[in-house]
Simulated assay, not measured.
Amino acid sequence: MELTDSFEVIDARFRKLAFGNVHLERLYTGCRWAEGPAWFAAGRYLVWSDIPNDRMLRWDETDGSVSVFRQPALNTNGHTVDAQGRLVSCEHRGRCVSRTEHDGTRRVLADRYEGARFNSPNDVVVKSDGSIWFSDPSYGIDSDYEGDAASSELGACCVYRIAPDLRSVTRVASDFVQPNGLAFSPDERWLYVVDTGATHREDGPRHIRRFRVQDDGARIDGGEVFAECGNGLFDGLRVDVHGNVWTSAGDGVHCHAPDGTLTGKIRVPEAVANVCFGGPKLNRLFICATTSLYAVYLNTRGAGRPV
């Protein structure tokens, strides 16, 4: 069956990942900059950020309704859900990584490295050992639009790891202009990290790098370029059970095979910021794209299982 115009096939492998009768759906519009989707399997709802409006929104799968999850929200950006079902968030204005506990209280997990405040944590992922990995570019301190304008105390934009016991924060990668979205491969042997440095340098990077996770699970090496963005910038990304990388871009969502080949695209009428897999089978890709939340069913599942 021929695919709908929601999909663009570049490599034949992409056809196996899409359905012929499926279209992209817009679930909500009205944001200024939609970001950071996170799926809560137990409640069948999605939470995402509307950063400039300083709020988090909630889409309910049971009836399609959208409500305000939290406002003010400290210009929160990226989110993830840990193995205990708690929301882990990157706060621009809080300049920290926080966690929402089961009783609703907010706990700051890390806000400094060697005594200096973070710039503006951007995106976050929790590894199976409980460690928390996050990027720290400068976007939240560059202006008052998505945070509070300020000078960097660290003087660098890096990737960090919070230990499972929360007692230490280590810098795992420092050779970035603006580190952004990040995700592990299904077996956690690889860490993918986006660099959106082109926002700050005319010749800056607009690519995904791939790092090998060392045997101790706490350090990375390598960092070769995995894929270059041909339209706009990559931003947030997720990996499916087959190791395909689904990443945001200026013209939609790009799908890269594990070997880095661009195999296809999901066409979205707005620039995409971030994505996540959700639904009971993790086979629905939710897409945060500038003013709107979109979704599309795929013939694959997100890596990991619903919590």
Rank of each mutant, 00 (worst) to 15 (best):
F118A: 07
E114K: 13
G94M: 01
V88M: 00
N119E: 13
D103L: 02
G85T: 05
R117V: 04
G104W: 14
A110T: 07
G94W: 02
R117Q: 12
N119S: 05
E91Y: 07
F118T: 04
R86L: 09
L87H: 12
R93I: 00
G104K: 13
R95N: 11
R117A: 14
H92S: 08
V97W: 02
D103S: 04
L87N: 10
S89V: 01
L87Q: 10
R99Y: 06
H92V: 06
D103C: 11
V108Y: 09
G94F: 06
E101W: 08
D103R: 03
D111E: 15
E101I: 07
T100M: 13
R99L: 13
V88I: 15
D82V: 02
S120D: 14
G104R: 06
G94R: 03
D82S: 08
G115W: 05
S89R: 10
D103P: 04
F118L: 08
A116P: 00
R95H: 14
R93V: 00
H92F: 07
L109I: 09
T100C: 09
R93W: 06
N119M: 04
G115M: 05
V108W: 04
S120V: 09
D103M: 02
C96A: 15
E101P: 02
E91A: 09
D82M: 04
G85K: 01
G94Y: 05
A116M: 13
G85L: 00
C96F: 02
V88A: 01
A83Q: 13
G104C: 11
R112L: 06
R107V: 15
G94A: 05
Y113L: 02
Y113P: 01
D82K: 00
R112I: 00
V88R: 00
R95G: 09
V108S: 04
G115Q: 03
F118V: 08
A116E: 12
R93Q: 12
C90W: 12
S98Q: 10
D103T: 03
N119G: 10
S120C: 06
E91Q: 14
Y113V: 06
R117C: 12
R112H: 14
E101T: 12
R107Q: 15
V97G: 02
N119T: 10
F118C: 09
D103W: 06
Q84G: 01
E114Y: 03
G104E: 15
R86V: 06
T105N: 05
L109Y: 11
G104A: 13
A83W: 01
E101F: 05
F118G: 09
C90D: 11
R117E: 12
L87G: 11
H102W: 02
R117L: 13
G85E: 04
H92R: 01
N119V: 06
T105E: 14
S120K: 03
D82Q: 03
H102D: 14
C96H: 03
A83N: 07
G94N: 07
C96Y: 05
E91L: 13
H92Q: 04
L87V: 09
T100N: 02
R95Q: 15
